[in-house]
Amino acid sequence: MKRVILAYSGGLDTSAALHWLKHERNYKVSTFYANVGQHDDVEAITDRALSIGADGVFVEDLRKVFIEKYCMRALMANAERYDGSILAGALSRPLITYELVKRASHEGCEAIAHGGTLGGNDTIRFEIAAAALAPELQVIAPHGEWPMKKREDLFEYTDRHGIEIPRRDVSEIITADQNLWGASFECVSDSHCLRTAGNNAFFITTSLEEAPSQPATIKIGFNEGLPVSLDGEDMSPLDMVNTLNELGAAHSIGRGSGIENRLIGDKVLKFHEHPAAAILFAGHRAMEDATISKSVMWLSRQLSNNYAELVFNGLWFSDLREALDAFFRQTQKYVTGSCTVQIHKGKIRLVELESPYSLLTATGAASEKDKEYYRQATSGYSEVIAHNLRLEAKRRKRIF
């Protein structure tokens, strides 16, 4: 009998997958639940897996490693997509797959399985990561084999087999994804998503109307690009993210929406919220702006986009990601000091910044000697740049 371990969330897709693998394919199936900060009822999920027929149930608390080894690297790289996503879900998938493959090896499984839908981003991410980590393992995607095509079919299947699944209003939300770094959801149609957003149906953050009338001020300390303290108190990355999530959520920080271009080219309107990440990104960018030289900053901003796309495309376990990490580690050696930000009604404003490596020049602070140098240097620089334009102008026809 083939031994399979299933990445299990306890939701509709993975519960149907567990029953199908166990009772339709007659595999020996264990489940693996990765806690990356979903706020799920783990005991209920474990009971559900056992009631469906799981031969083994494994639960791992991965919150610390998720924040420290994945999210902090993304922070140092300023890995944010053009649609405003900070890639909370995409960052968790390589970690979950890594732990799933490791558990499969320990349990002597011949295959791993997941509940990702056909053509979905997560399906591709799981399978790419598994191929990089353990190419000898078979990857089973029940969505590609069973006859159920719609979510209504899956609910009918689970109802028929007595599997109780917590239900959201499926006429509105199709999928929701949440962890410590952020949450996102997508809907049946654009109009449904817009109506849901208008009703303040978010998972984490308070609405703008209900946010406090008075702003909150936060001082974040950084050491070589990593956040290390909050309001003068040393704090681990995990504790800081938890604290900033609570504080930022109360002030409606990190809400947003955008059109996501999926890996296969489809487009979907997604809403996301990431209070802690939004605050940390704002503080980190401010520190970089003050401490990183112009030429390094120019390349860094370009490679940030590459890093974000790499994560989105599921290429975490690649030589390119390791090379980019090495680049960004080098850029962070002067990103040390503190920045103070004010959060209020969904907005983040920089208040103060301090760093022993700051390259900021105070307006009017230059000496007379410096001013004379600037005048001469600027004049000479302008002449060099303008020389090429003069040559081009000579061969052009007059335009006046």
Results as ranks from 00 to 15, higher is better:
69 K>C: 10
186 E>Q: 11
83 D>C: 13
194 L>E: 15
84 G>E: 00
122 D>M: 02
106 H>M: 09
160 R>W: 06
87 L>Q: 03
173 I>D: 04
116 G>C: 01
94 P>F: 12
106 H>G: 01
183 A>Y: 15
72 M>Q: 10
179 N>G: 05
90 A>W: 14
69 K>F: 05
142 P>D: 06
85 S>N: 14
65 V>T: 11
145 E>L: 14
114 H>Y: 06
193 C>E: 08
113 A>E: 01
175 T>M: 04
60 E>W: 12
135 P>N: 00
131 A>L: 09
114 H>R: 04
124 I>C: 00
102 K>C: 05
90 A>G: 08
64 K>Y: 12
179 N>P: 02
59 V>N: 03
198 G>E: 13
158 T>W: 05
85 S>H: 12
109 C>H: 06
127 E>C: 05
78 N>W: 08
80 E>N: 04
156 E>R: 15
83 D>L: 03
153 D>H: 12
113 A>P: 11
138 Q>K: 07
116 G>D: 03
138 Q>V: 04
198 G>V: 00
191 S>F: 13
147 P>V: 05
75 L>Q: 05
105 S>Q: 13
61 D>M: 07
158 T>S: 12
91 L>A: 05
156 E>M: 09
125 R>Q: 02
195 R>V: 12
99 E>K: 15
175 T>S: 03
172 E>G: 05
63 R>Q: 15
147 P>N: 08
87 L>N: 07
151 R>E: 09
85 S>R: 15
201 A>N: 14
105 S>F: 06
107 E>W: 03
101 V>E: 01
118 L>R: 08
142 P>H: 10
85 S>D: 11
120 G>N: 00
140 I>W: 07
62 L>D: 07
136 E>F: 10
95 L>N: 12
150 K>N: 04
175 T>K: 08
196 T>C: 12
173 I>R: 14
183 A>Q: 14
95 L>C: 11
128 I>Y: 06
110 E>K: 07
170 V>M: 11
191 S>R: 13
146 W>P: 10
105 S>C: 06
192 H>D: 02
124 I>V: 06
110 E>N: 12
120 G>A: 02
71 C>D: 01
193 C>R: 09
150 K>V: 01
190 D>F: 07
110 E>P: 10
65 V>H: 08
71 C>W: 15
136 E>D: 11
174 I>T: 08
56 G>Q: 09
172 E>V: 15
97 T>C: 10
187 C>V: 02
173 I>G: 06
98 Y>E: 15
79 A>H: 03
65 V>D: 06
77 A>P: 01
159 D>T: 13
162 G>P: 03
96 I>N: 10
191 S>P: 00
198 G>H: 13
124 I>R: 05
93 R>F: 07
188 V>D: 05
130 A>S: 02
182 G>E: 02
55 D>I: 01
58 F>L: 05
60 E>Y: 12
56 G>Y: 11
189 S>D: 13
117 T>I: 14
103 R>S: 12
120 G>S: 01
113 A>T: 08
127 E>H: 09
150 K>P: 00
161 H>C: 08
90 A>S: 12
110 E>G: 15
155 F>I: 11
183 A>P: 10
76 M>H: 12
144 G>L: 02
198 G>R: 09
89 G>K: 08
66 F>G: 00
96 I>S: 06
177 D>I: 01
66 F>Y: 14
164 E>I: 07
185 F>R: 06
109 C>A: 07
168 R>N: 14
176 A>H: 11
112 I>E: 06
91 L>E: 03
